[in-house]
C-alpha cells in the first residue's frame, strides 16, 4: 500500500498496528473468528475499543485473507466514512504490474474524489523525496548494525520503526537524522554473544526482541514487513518517470512478502541478509494462523540450515512479549549456538 499517495494528498498515513501485549481480544472475537490471525484481531480490538477514533479513513491492501476480511468488517460496520482496498497481484510480471498500477491510480482517484483534494504530480514527487529520505536513513541505521558491536539494539530499532509508522514523516526524518548522527559517532557499542536475525509475521512489540537480547542474542537484522521489507527498496525519483508508475513499480517489486510468487525471490533475499549481517542464527516468529509464513517456513528453514544457520521457530500470538516458554526456548537455542561455537 503506497503511503505516499495519502501523504501527497495532504493527509497523514498511520499504519494500523495492534496492541503490544497479548490481550484477550474478546471485542475482536465477537466480530471475527479465532482463526483470524491475532495481528488482525488485535488491530480490530483496538478499533472497537475506540483507540483509533481519530481516523478519517482506512486503506488496506488485499494481501491476505485476514486483512481482506478485516476490510469487509470495517465496511460492514462502518468504522470510518472512507474505506478502500487496493488489489495486489502475487506475481511481478508485466501484466501484474499493469493491474497494480491501475489499482494505485484508482486509490489516488478515489481519495481525490472522496476528500475533494487534488494529488498533483509535483506533490507526489515531493512526497517521494521525503519517503526515500526515510528509507536512506533507515538503511544507514541498519548498516551500522553490520559492525561487530553495533551502536543500537534490535529492540531499539523496532521502537524507532514503530514511531515512524505513527508520526508525520518529516518530523520522523528529523529525529532519525539525529539518531543516525549520534549512532555513527562511535560512542556506543552493544555486545551480544550471538548475532541473530528475526523473521516471520508482523512484529511490533519491542519487548519480544528485548527478551531475546537480554538473554545474550543480539538482533542485528530482521526480515519483517515491519522492518526491512518496509523500507528496503527506494522509489525511482527520476523526473522522466511518472510518479504513480514509479510508486507502483516499487511497491510491487519491493523485498517480497511471503505471499509473493515465486517464493525463491524472498528466500534468496533473506539468505543474502544472513550473509551481509553475519548472522549466527535465525529466530522465526510465526503468528498463529499467519498462513503465508507458515507455509514457507519449512522451506526457508531448510535453505538456512543448508547454509549452516540454525533456526528457532516460535509459534506465538501477535503482541507476545516473550515471557515464560518463549524465554526458555530462546535460552536453549542460545546454548545450542554456544555448543556449536565451542566445537
Amino acid at each position: 500500500m503506497p503511503e505516499e499517495i495519502i501523504h501527497a494528498a495532504g493527509m497523514v498515513p498511520i499504519r494500523l498496528t495492534g496492541d503490544s501485549q497479548e490481550p484477550a481480544l474478546e471485542e475482536a472475537n465477537a466480530y471475527m473468528y479465532i482463526n483470524t490471525c491475532s495481528f488482525v484481531r488485535s488491530c480490530l480490538d483496538l478499533v472497537l475499543r475506540n483507540q483509533y477514533h481519530f481516523l478519517d479513513g482506512f486503506v488496506s491492501a488485499a494481501t491476505c485473507d485476514c486483512p481482506r476480511r478485516l476490510t469487509d468488517v470495517w465496511k460492514h460496520y462502518d468504522f470510518t466514512p472512507f474505506v478502500h482496498i487496493v488489489d495486489v497481484p502475487r506475481k511481478m510480471t508485466k501484466s501484474a504490474h499493469d493491474l497494480y498500477h491501475n489499482e494505485v491510480q484508482g486509490l489516488k482517484d478515489r481519495l481525490e474524489g472522496f476528500f475533494d483534494v487534488e494529488i498533483t504530480d509535483e506533490a507526489l514527487r515531493q512526497t517521494i523525496k521525503v519517503f526515500n529520505r526515510t528509507r536512506e536513513l533507515l538503511k544507514e541505521l541498519y548498516d551500522l548494525r553490520k559492525s561487530d558491536c553495533p551502536p543500537i539494539t534490535g529492540a531499539e530499532v523496532l521502537e524507532v520503526l514503530n514511531a515512524g509508522f505513527k508520526m508525520p514523516r518529516e518530523e520522523f526524518n528529523g529525529l532519525l537524522e539525529r539518531l543516525v548522527g549520534e549512532a555513527s559517532s562511535g560512542q556506543r557499542a552493544v555486545k551480544g554473544k550471538f548475532r541473530l536475525m528475526i523473521n516471520g509475521s508482523p512484529l511490533n512489540n519491542p519487548e519480544f526482541v528485548k527478551t531475546i537480547e537480554d538473554l545474550g542474542g543480539l538482533v542485528v537484522v530482521d526480515e519483517l514487513c515491519t522492518g526491512v521489507r518496509h523500507w528496503w527498496d527506494l522509489v525511482d525519483d527520476s523526473p522522466e518517470i511518472d510518479p504513480v508508475e514509479a510508486l507502483s513499480r516499487r511497491y510491487l517489486n519491493n523485498f517480497p512478502c511471503p505471499r509473493m510468487f515465486p517464493p525463491e525471490e524472498r528466500f534468496n533475499r533473506a539468505l543474502q541478509l544472513v550473509k551481509d549481517y553475519r548472522v549466527d542464527g535465525v529466530v522465526s516468529e510465526v503468528v498463529r494462523y499467519c498462513v503465508h509464513c507458515a507455509h514457507d517456513q519449512p522451506l526457508l528453514r531448510r535453505r538456512l540450515e543448508i547454509q549452516g544457520v540454525p533456526v528457532l521457530e516460535l509459534s506465538i500470538e501477535y503482541g507476545a512479549s516473550g515471557t515464560g516458554q518463549i524465554m526458555t526456548r530462546v535460552q536453549a537455542f542460545l546454548e545450542m549456538l554456544e555448543g556449536r561455537a565451542r566445537r
Binding site: A30, Y31, M32, Y33, N35, T36, C37, D65, C66, R68, R69, L70, D72, V73, H76, Y289, V291
Partner: peptide, 9 residues
Amino acid sequence: RQTDACIRM
C-alpha cells in the same frame, strides 16, 4: 479463515 471471518457479518 476467510469464510469464518464472515460469520458475524
